[in-house]
Simulated assay, not measured.
Amino acid sequence: MSTDDLMEIQQLLGRYALHMTRGDIDGVLAVFTPDGTYSAFGDTYGLDEFPTLVAAAPKGLFLVGTAVIELPENGETDGNTATGTQPLCFIDHATHAMRIGYYNDTYVRTADGWRLRTRAMTFIRRSGAHDSGRPHAFERPGA
Rank of each mutant, 00 (worst) to 15 (best):
M1R: 09
S2G: 07
S2W: 00
M7I: 11
R15I: 12
R15A: 14
L18S: 10
H19T: 15
M20W: 06
R22N: 08
G23C: 04
G23P: 01
G23R: 02
I25A: 01
G27E: 12
V28Q: 06
L29V: 08
F32M: 15
P34K: 13
D35R: 07
S39N: 11
S39Y: 00
A40E: 14
A40I: 07
T44A: 09
G46F: 00
G46R: 15
G46K: 14
D48H: 12
E49I: 03
V54E: 04
A56E: 12
A57I: 04
A57T: 09
K59C: 03
G60I: 03
G60S: 05
F62S: 15
L63S: 13
G65N: 09
G65C: 06
G65P: 00
T66Q: 12
T66R: 13
T66Y: 01
V68P: 00
I69S: 08
L71P: 00
L71Y: 00
P72E: 14
E73R: 10
N74K: 15
N74G: 09
G75A: 05
D78M: 04
G79E: 05
G79N: 09
N80Y: 01
T81A: 10
T81R: 13
T83H: 02
G84D: 14
G84P: 01
T85G: 11
L88A: 07
L88C: 04
C89D: 04
I91Y: 05
D92M: 05
H93L: 13
H93R: 14
H93S: 13
H93V: 13
A94T: 10
T95I: 03
H96E: 15
A97V: 07
A97W: 10
G101V: 08
Y103S: 08
V108T: 11
T110A: 06
A111Y: 01
D112K: 12
G113V: 07
W114K: 14
W114P: 11
L116T: 08
L116K: 03
L116G: 09
R119H: 03
A120E: 14
A120Q: 10
M121N: 11
T122H: 02
R125Q: 13
S127C: 01
S127V: 01
G128R: 05
A129G: 08
D131A: 07
S132F: 00
H136E: 15
A137E: 12
A137K: 10
E139K: 11
R140P: 08
R140G: 07
R140I: 03
R140Q: 06
G142Q: 04
G142I: 05
G142K: 12
A143T: 13
A143P: 10
A143L: 06
